[in-house]
Design a protein around this nucleic acid. Structure first.
Lengths: 268, 268
DNA sequence: CCGCATTGTATCGCAATGCGATAGCTTGTA
DNA sequence: TACAAGCTATCGCATTGCGATACAATGCGG
């Protein structure tokens, strides 16, 4: 009776390709959408808010919230009927950090580096045009305490990003820059293509990257890439210092050798 | 032709209830099973290993691995055809730490406490009979660097666990102890029920818990509960010290007041 | 070097599963 | 107390995911 709807809704929602991928299980994406709906601005959500935030209809929101509730990833306040994430949502990250050999290997070096420098140290990896902090160790001198493991930043204006891009084949680095949304985050951001290209060349030749207040005021960052057996950058180590305690030249002189040494040690 | 199989397999696999819960979406659980199959002992998995590890049949393993691949949570080495987790699996944890007001509030206090004590500090929460580390800050004196955010430990033999149990209504604390698998992890583990009950009473009256080498050799831990408006324990703060640098009495004298003060400050 | 076994990839018909509309219920409000 | 808004439960239908199978690739031993 009812006409085939697939042709009536050519590609209304969701990414183009995934529509006709017979192996793709849509329920998984929807469940993840529910988890990702929670953030700093929305620590708790009612069912209808959840439906609005995820773009799911009420029934789907109900089903996936219920499922995640049953699996222990959500909790529901019986009073307010609002949902919130539980600590069980840490489990995938735990499995990641435990299973990733590079992270496990890097941790002691990063702790050591943080101890010696008394500054925050991070291990980052590329994810598209962005870097992700996959491990982070802060000291009492921490600048941005809201930055945590899992935080994303644009690669083009962060020292770990520049460090990794500079050791990629130029084609690939350029492709990432082309795909990036280049814009200034502070008055000091390097964001014009020619300057970025020059910065990559300079970084490649000296072996480490420095970004001073390019994304966060008062934040100086010195980073070096970690290379795999084929010389491909797989991650980066960086130290973040407050400009209030140290000018850029001093930071570079003081920390660049340590950061480079640490990155090489982790590279093995 | 083929006889209805549902009746032939009354309730072979999966938890009892979820079989006839019309709102429960099974695909979500299967996807999570795939993610959780990766750990320190199995950093990468082939398709058939994945099927074996998750208990899914080959087709299901294929479909969910494919789906998670497409969503960016898995990567596949085109050479070895092995899967591994990507840094995107950090995203749920990121959303949790950003959305949880208690965690956000606690972070600066924990950093401060780590700086003052020069020891590792943690924020933990209860999850059933276990505690989960939801935030962790280490210093150069860190003992167990493999312990990270997301690590689970039994509540009964950890200072944060005892601190929280001691401030629960006795019924609830007892229920958790009853559900726990009580066994010694070291020669110093308190694991007999009467002693545990005594320990809870003592902890409740003095306001903090001390566990010395009860789960890890050389690990002394001092913890205090964080209470919500109704006086219910919602988390715990602890400091972990190496016995090599400090005996138990000293650790208690030195750190208990700081830990209690910090916990109270976070409680607001 | 080649055949065989093992493992990964693609296909396909079926029906069970999840969809989404709706109705009933609960809660807070005017 | 009646109403509105939102949460919960139900149900028939068809789409989606299931899982058996066929095909391709890879690696191993003869």
């Amino acid at each position: 009776m009812s006409p085939p709807r697939a042709s009536a809704l050519p590609a209304a929602s969701s990414p183009p390709e995934e529509r006709d991928d017979p192996l793709f299980v849509r329920s998984v994406e929807k469940a993840i959408r529910v988890l990702m709906a929670f953030n700093a601005r929305r620590p708790t959500l009612s069912l209808s808010q959840l439906a609005a935030a995820t773009g799911l209809d009420k029934s789907a929101a109900q089903r996936f919230a219920h499922t995640l509730l049953r699996l222990g990833y959500l909790r529901k306040d019986p009073r307010t009927k609002h949902f919130e994430l539980t600590s069980r949502t840490l489990a995938p990250a735990y499995h990641y950090t435990q299973s990733n050999p590079l992270v496990r290997r890097a941790v002691p070096y990063l702790v050591q580096l943080a101890g010696v420098t008394e500054e925050a140290t991070n291990l980052s990896m590329l994810d598209g045009t962005e870097i992700v902090f996959v491990a982070r160790f802060v000291t009492r001198h921490v600048i941005a305490s809201h930055v945590t493991v899992g935080t994303h930043s644009p690669a083009f204006c962060t020292a770990p990003g520049i460090a990794m891009l500079s050791h990629l084949p130029p084609r690939e680095a350029q492709a990432i820059l082309d795909a990036s949304i280049l814009r200034p985050y502070t008055p000091h951001t390097t964001w014009h293509m020619p300057e970025l290209q020059a910065k990559l060349r300079e970084t490649a030749s000296r072996g480490y990257a420095v970004c001073s207040e390019e994304i966060l005021i008062n934040d100086i960052s010195v980073a070096a890439p970690i290379l795999d057996g084929d010389g491909r950058p797989v991650a980066a180590v960086n130290v973040a210092v407050s400009k209030l305690r140290c000018d850029t030249a001093t930071a570079e002189r003081q920390f660049a050798p340590l950061v480079v040494t640490t990155a090489q040690a982790i590279s093995g």
